Deep mutational scan, measured.
Amino acid sequence: MASQGTKRSYEQMETDGERQNATEIRASVGKMIDGIGRFYIQMCTELKLSDYEGRLIQNSLTIERMVLSAFDERRNKYLEEHPSAGKDPKKTGGPIYKRVDRKWMRELVLYDKEEIRRIWRQANNGDDATAGLTHMMIWHSNLNDTTYQRTRALVRTGMDPRMCSLMQGSTLPRRSGAAGAAVKGVGTMVMELIRMIKRGINDRNFWRGENGRKTRSAYERMCNILKGKFQTAAQRAMMDQVRESRNPGNAEIEDLIFLARSALILRGSVAHKSCLPACVYGPAVASGYDFEKEGYSLVGIDPFKLLQNSQVYSLIRPNENPAHKSQLVWMACNSAAFEDLRVLSFIRGTKVSPRGKLSTRGVQIASNENMDAMESSTLELRSRYWAIRTRSGGNTNQQRASAGQISVQPAFSVQRNLPFDKPTIMAAFTGNTEGRTSDMRAEIIRMMEGAKPEEMSFQGRGVFELSDERAANPIVPSFDMSNEGSYFFGDNAEEYDN
Score class of each variant (00 low, 15 high):
Ala2Asn: 00
Ala2Trp: 01
Ser3Trp: 11
Gln4Ile: 14
Gln4Tyr: 15
Lys7Ile: 03
Lys7Trp: 02
Arg8Ala: 00
Tyr10Arg: 00
Met13Lys: 11
Glu14Met: 02
Thr15Glu: 12
Thr15Leu: 15
Thr15Phe: 08
Arg19Glu: 01
Asn21Asp: 03
Arg26Tyr: 07
Arg26Trp: 04
Ala27Tyr: 04
Ala27Asn: 07
Val29Ala: 12
Lys31Thr: 06
Lys31Glu: 14
Met32Ile: 05
Ile33Gln: 00
Arg38Thr: 12
Phe39Gln: 05
Tyr40Ala: 12
Gln42Asp: 10
Gln42Ala: 09
Gln42Val: 06
Cys44Pro: 02
Cys44Asn: 11
Thr45Pro: 08
Leu47Lys: 07
Leu47Ala: 04
Leu49Ser: 06
Ser50Phe: 09
Ser50His: 11
Ser50Gly: 15
Leu56Glu: 06
Asn59Arg: 10
Asn59Tyr: 05
Ser60Gln: 07
Thr62Gly: 10
Thr62Ile: 02
Thr62Trp: 03
Met66Pro: 05
Val67Asp: 05
Phe71Cys: 05
Phe71Ala: 10
Asp72Gln: 04
Arg74Ser: 12
Arg74His: 12
Arg75Trp: 10
Lys77Glu: 01
Lys77Tyr: 00
Lys77Thr: 10
Leu79Asn: 06
Glu81Ala: 03
His82Ile: 04
Ser84His: 11
Gly86Leu: 13
Lys87Thr: 05
Lys87Val: 06
Asp88Ala: 00
Asp88Lys: 01
Lys90Glu: 07
Lys91Asn: 05
Lys91Cys: 06
Thr92Asp: 11
Thr92Gln: 06
Gly93Lys: 08
Ile96Tyr: 11
Tyr97Cys: 12
Tyr97Leu: 04
Asp101Cys: 03
Asp101Met: 09
Lys103Asp: 07
Trp104Asp: 05
Arg106Ser: 12
Arg106Ile: 06
Val109Lys: 12
Val109Leu: 11
Leu110Pro: 11
Tyr111Lys: 00
Asp112Ala: 12
Glu115Trp: 06
Glu115Tyr: 05
Ile119Gln: 06
Ile119Met: 12
Ile119Ser: 03
Trp120Val: 06
Asn124Phe: 10
Gly126Tyr: 06
Asp127Tyr: 06
Asp128Lys: 10
Ala129Ile: 05
Thr130Lys: 15
Ala131Phe: 02
Leu133Phe: 03
His135Ala: 09
Met136Asp: 00
Met136Thr: 05
Met136Gln: 12
Trp139Glu: 06
Trp139Arg: 05
Leu143Phe: 08
Asn144Val: 14
Asp145Ala: 12
Thr146Cys: 09
Thr151Cys: 04
Thr151Gly: 04
Arg152Ile: 05
Leu154Phe: 02
Met159Arg: 02
Asp160Pro: 03
Arg162Asp: 03
Ser165Asn: 15
Ser165His: 00
Gly169Val: 09
Thr171Ser: 05
Leu172Thr: 04
Pro173Asn: 08
Arg174Lys: 09
Arg174Glu: 05
Arg175Leu: 01
Gly180Asp: 10
Ala181Ile: 00
Ala181Tyr: 07
Ala181His: 14
Val183Cys: 07
Gly185Pro: 02
Gly185Trp: 02
Val186Glu: 05
Val186Ile: 15
Thr188Lys: 08
Thr188Leu: 04
Met189Asn: 02
Glu192Cys: 11
Leu193Pro: 03
Ile194Gly: 00
Ile197Tyr: 03
Ile197Trp: 10
Lys198Ile: 10
Lys198Gly: 03
Arg199Ser: 06
Ile201Thr: 15
Asn202Ser: 05
Asp203Ala: 07
Phe206Glu: 07
Phe206His: 10
Phe206Trp: 06
Gly209Leu: 10
Glu210Trp: 10
Asn211Asp: 11
Asn211Met: 15
Lys214Asp: 00
Lys214Phe: 06
Arg216Cys: 06
Tyr219Met: 12
Ile225Met: 11
Ile225Arg: 02
Lys227Trp: 08
Lys227Pro: 04
Lys229Gln: 12
Gln231Lys: 14
Thr232Phe: 02
Ala233Gly: 03
Ala234Lys: 06
Gln235Glu: 05
Gln235Trp: 10
Arg236Asn: 06
Arg236Thr: 09
Arg236Glu: 10
Arg236Val: 10
Arg236Ser: 08
Ala237Gly: 15
Ala237Tyr: 02
Arg246Ile: 01
Asn247Trp: 02
Asn247Ala: 13
Pro248Lys: 05
Ala251Gln: 02
Ala251Phe: 08
Ile253Ala: 09
Asp255Cys: 03
Leu256Ala: 12
Leu256Ser: 07
Ile257Ala: 04
Ile257Val: 06
Ile257Arg: 00
Leu264Val: 06
Gly268His: 11
Ser269Phe: 09
Ser269Val: 09
His272Arg: 08
Lys273Pro: 07
Pro277Thr: 12
Ala278Asn: 13
Cys279Val: 12
Cys279Glu: 08
Pro283His: 10
Ala284Glu: 01
Ala284Lys: 13
Ala284Asp: 08
Val285Lys: 11
Ala286Ile: 08
Ser287Thr: 14
Gly288Asp: 10
Asp290Thr: 09
Asp290Met: 13
Glu292Trp: 10
Glu292Arg: 12
Glu292Leu: 14
Gly295Leu: 04
Tyr296Leu: 06
Leu298Glu: 01
Val299Gln: 03
Val299Ile: 11
Val299Lys: 11
Gly300Leu: 03
Pro303Val: 11
Phe304His: 05
Phe304Gln: 04
Leu307Gln: 15
Asn309Thr: 15
Ser310Val: 12
Ser310Pro: 02
Gln311His: 07
Val312Thr: 14
Ser314Asp: 04
Leu315Met: 15
Ile316Glu: 03
Arg317Glu: 04
Pro322Ile: 06
Pro322Leu: 05
His324Glu: 03
Leu328Lys: 04
Trp330Ile: 09
Ala332Ser: 14
Ala332Ile: 04
Cys333Met: 15
Cys333Asn: 03
Asn334Thr: 09
Phe338Tyr: 10
Glu339Met: 07
Glu339Phe: 03
Asp340Arg: 02
Leu341Ile: 15
Val343Thr: 06
Ser345Trp: 04
Ser345Asn: 11
Lys351Ser: 06
Lys351Gln: 13
Val352Arg: 02
Ser353Trp: 14
Arg355Asn: 12
Arg355Trp: 12
Lys357Val: 05
Ser359Glu: 01
Ser359Arg: 15
Thr360Lys: 05
Thr360Ile: 07
Thr360Leu: 11
Arg361Asn: 03
Ile365Thr: 11
Ile365Leu: 15
Ser367Ala: 14
Asn368Ala: 13
Glu369Pro: 13
Asn370Trp: 05
Met371Asn: 05
Met371Asp: 01
Met371Gln: 05
Asp372Ala: 06
Asp372Glu: 15
Ala373Tyr: 06
Met374Cys: 15
Glu375Pro: 02
Thr378Trp: 00
Leu379Gln: 03
Glu380Phe: 06
Arg384Leu: 05
Arg384Met: 05
Arg384Cys: 13
Ala387Phe: 07
Ala387Arg: 01
Ile388Gly: 04
Ile388Met: 01
Ile388Asn: 04
Arg389Asp: 07
Arg391Gly: 07
Ser392Phe: 04
Ser392Asp: 04
Gly394Tyr: 05
Asn395Leu: 01
Asn395Gln: 10
Thr396Phe: 11
Thr396Glu: 00
Gln398Ser: 01
Gln398Phe: 09
Gln398Asn: 04
Arg400Asn: 04
Ser402His: 15
Ala403Lys: 14
Gly404Ala: 15
Gly404Ile: 03
Gly404Val: 07
Ile406Val: 15
Ile406Cys: 14
Ile406Pro: 02
Val408Gln: 05
Gln409Phe: 00
Pro410Ile: 00
Ala411Val: 14
Val414Asn: 00
Gln415Val: 13
Leu418Met: 15
Leu418Val: 15
Pro419Leu: 12
Phe420Glu: 00
Pro423Val: 13
Ile425Asp: 03
Ile425Asn: 09
Ala427Leu: 14
Ala428Gln: 09
Thr430Lys: 10
Gly431His: 14
Asn432Cys: 15
Thr433Arg: 14
Glu434Arg: 04
Gly435Thr: 10
Arg436Ser: 06
Arg436Cys: 01
Thr437Ala: 13
Thr437Met: 01
Ser438Leu: 00
Ser438Glu: 00
Ser438His: 15
Met440Tyr: 15
Arg441Asp: 07
Arg441Gly: 03
Glu443Thr: 03
Arg446Tyr: 00
Met447His: 14
Met448Lys: 12
Met448Thr: 14
Ala451Glu: 05
Lys452Gly: 09
Lys452His: 12
Lys452Pro: 13
Pro453Gly: 14
Glu455Pro: 06
Met456Ser: 13
Met456Arg: 15
Ser457Thr: 11
Gln459Val: 02
Arg461Ser: 03
Glu465Thr: 00
Leu466Tyr: 15
Arg470Leu: 01
Ala471Gly: 02
Ala471Leu: 01
Ala472Leu: 00
Ala472Cys: 14
Asn473His: 12
Pro474Phe: 01
Ile475Pro: 13
Val476Phe: 00
Phe479Ile: 15
Phe479His: 11
Asp480Trp: 01
Met481Phe: 10
Asn483Met: 13
Asn483Tyr: 11
Gly485Ser: 10
Gly485Glu: 04
Ser486Asp: 01
Tyr487Ile: 07
Phe488Ser: 08
Phe488Trp: 03
Phe488Arg: 00
Gly490Leu: 06
Gly490Asn: 03
Asp491Pro: 00
Asp491Glu: 13
Asp491Leu: 03
Asn492Leu: 02
Glu495Pro: 10
Glu495Phe: 01
Glu495Leu: 04
Asp497Pro: 00
Asp497Leu: 06
